[in-house]
Amino acid sequence: MRYAMAVDTKKCVGCSDCVVACQTENNVPIGFCRDWVVETMAGSYPQLEIEIRSERCNHCANAPCVRCCPTGASHFDTGGIILVKQNKCIGCGACIASCPYDARYPHPDGYVDKCTFCVQRIRNGMPPACAAVCPTKCIYFGDLDDPNSDVSLVLKKRKFKTLIPEAGTDPKLYFLI
C-alpha cells in the first residue's frame, strides 16, 4: 500500500478551505498550519498564466525527515505515511531543518507536527479532511498500488509533476498540470 495525493492545479482556486478544514479537523492551533496554498503567476498583462497549488507534507518515499530523526519519532507508517510519535519526539528540530518543503512546524506543546494524511480518518475509510472539503474537488487521495483508486486513475489520465524532484525525496504529493 502506498498512499498518495494529487492536487489539480487547473481546478484549485486557492480558496484555502483545505487549510481551515485541516485546522479544525486536526486541532491545529491558530497561527499554525499543516497545509497551505501557493499561487504563482507569470507573464505580463494581458498574457498571464497562473498556477495554484495546495501544498502539505509530501510523504516522501525517501524522507530526509525520517532519516535525521534521532529518536525514531518520525517514522514510516502503514502505507508509507510519515508520522511523528508525539511521545517520542524531543523537539530537536532536525526534521524541520531537513524538510526541503518546510512542511513541518513546532507545535506549541513541544513536539513537531505536520500533515498526517489524516490517518485517523483514512483508517476508517474516510478521505482526508482537506480532500473531503475542497469545493472544487481538486484533491485526489488513495493508494498508488490500487490501480482503481482515485489517485491512480487521475495520474494515469493527466500530466503531473512533483515539487523539487532534484531534492531526491520521491514525493507522494502530485500536482496535475
Binding site: 486541532n27 492551533p29 508525539q86 507545535h107 506549541p108 506543546d109 513536539y111 498526517t116 483508517r123 476508517n124
Partner: peptide
C-alpha cells in the same frame, strides 16, 4: 478556545 485541541493521536477513531 485556541487550544481546545485534543492533540491528534494518529490512528484513533473519531
Amino acid at each position: 478556545g485556541r487550544f481546545f485541541a485534543l492533540p491528534d493521536k494518529p490512528g484513533k477513531v473519531d
